[in-house]
Design a protein around this nucleic acid. Structure first.
Lengths: 216, 216
DNA sequence: CGACACGTTGATGTTAGTCAACTTTGGTGG
DNA sequence: CCACCAAAGTTGACTAACATCAACGTGTCG
């Protein structure tokens, strides 16, 4: 896209700050807004009628949120950290996108990647044990944070801070908070990871970790 | 798209018949083909290194399969029934799509819908009990078959044939074959469904079914 | 300092998985 | 046509894994 077009798109958007814990969109709402993440981390989640929650996605800077070309939002969007997003009304965004195939193409590629990611997560939820889930999660987190921080060709970071509480990890992994805690303890006691404080994780043994994740 | 363009697209594609059980694409393969389903039902699946399988999607006529604009296929595609598909080489399809924004738009919409569907399934895999999973599956199947058969405004069919074996249902629901069988028996004994033969299902009590699915 | 949210650990319960026997179905060839 | 066989499905007994319930740290912020 030309820089002129990008400028127009930028003007259409409204920069908004969202505080940790604040919900930007609600499951089942009319889909009247879409947005781009500028800074921070947010979760996408759905719940059963009786309140059990499942996190269905975690979005990082440059990721897209909301449901263009559709009338309802199928999951809630909540900030996991303080975040800044660029908000568009759906109608304006849809119209702009229809006129700019380049943008639609970008969006299509991202959506295809997200779909692959979601389907891959289904394998974890449907078929992996609690310990495999926790190990897989930590590995993936280290990879995504490495990608985000562009820390050169080394595609892993061995120390990082979790943007999630134990409860949120449980909601993402389809487990309970106690099970997550116990599995983390097990990995620590096995000398595979270290947990310097409650947000930090250090991966000490990459190979053992991949093994524990069921990538045997 | 104009009928002329559609004709070109159609000529690009090669009609292929796939027999039940035959695999069209393998997880991890180079993504060199994409296709449109003309007739039949196919599954998308991934497996862990040690062979546990998870079905991550079921596709019906008019659905799209394969990974355009990406180099590897992230899941296998296998025919659940004899099927006919319209096959394209990925390079030819990608090129054609880039030149036809209308096609890309259509594809984007479908992909967004698939993503919503996949994320909704994550709630089932992460948070629902075995009986809720089976009930949810049967309800969704009846809805999708109703949509497909365009049986008027009534958006449910109460009797239908499953395109899946018990093992495949288990792989889709993240359960074992025995658990699926037991839950079906439970629903039958409760008078909520009938199972005239091993492929057929009759939903006798829609409300009880929705209740059992956790849509309380 | 104290309150509260977050996290860990232990004891116990429940659900679904495992292992095994058995039944039904559908297809094949004598 | 029927006997036989393999594949699919069901059922039961037992087990393992995770959830639940409950008590007990720990760090943070007023």
């Amino acid at each position: 896209m030309s820089s002129g077009e990008l400028e127009v798109l930028n003007k259409m958007g409204r920069r908004v700050t969202v505080h940790r814990g604040q919900t930007l969109m609600w499951e089942g709402d009319d889909s009247s807004l879409v947005a781009n993440v500028i800074e921070g981390v947010l979760k996408l989640s759905t719940s059963t009628a009786d309140g059990r929650e499942q996190i269905v996605g975690v979005v990082y800077p440059s990721d897209f949120i909301g449901r263009p070309f559709g009338s309802t939002t199928h999951h809630s969007v909540t900030a996991l950290s303080d975040a800044r997003v660029c908000l568009f009304t759906r109608s304006a965004f849809d119209e702009f996108a229809r006129e700019h195939p380049e943008l639609e193409h970008k969006l299509l590629q991202r959506t295809l990647t997200e779909l692959d990611r979601a389907r891959h997560w289904m394998l974890l939820l449907g078929r992996k044990s609690a310990s495999e889930r926790v190990a897989t999660f930590l590995l993936e987190m280290s990879q995504r944070l490495a990608e985000a921080s562009c820390s050169g060709p080394a595609d892993m970071v061995s120390r990082f801070d979790l943007p999630l509480t134990r409860q949120q990890m449980a909601d993402l992994l389809g487990l309970t908070i106690e099970t997550v805690s116990r599995q983390l303890t097990r990995l620590r006691q096995a000398g595979i990871i270290d947990l310097p404080d409650r947000r930090a994780v250090v991966i000490l043994d990459q190979a053992a970790m991949e093994d524990a994740a069921g990538l045997a």
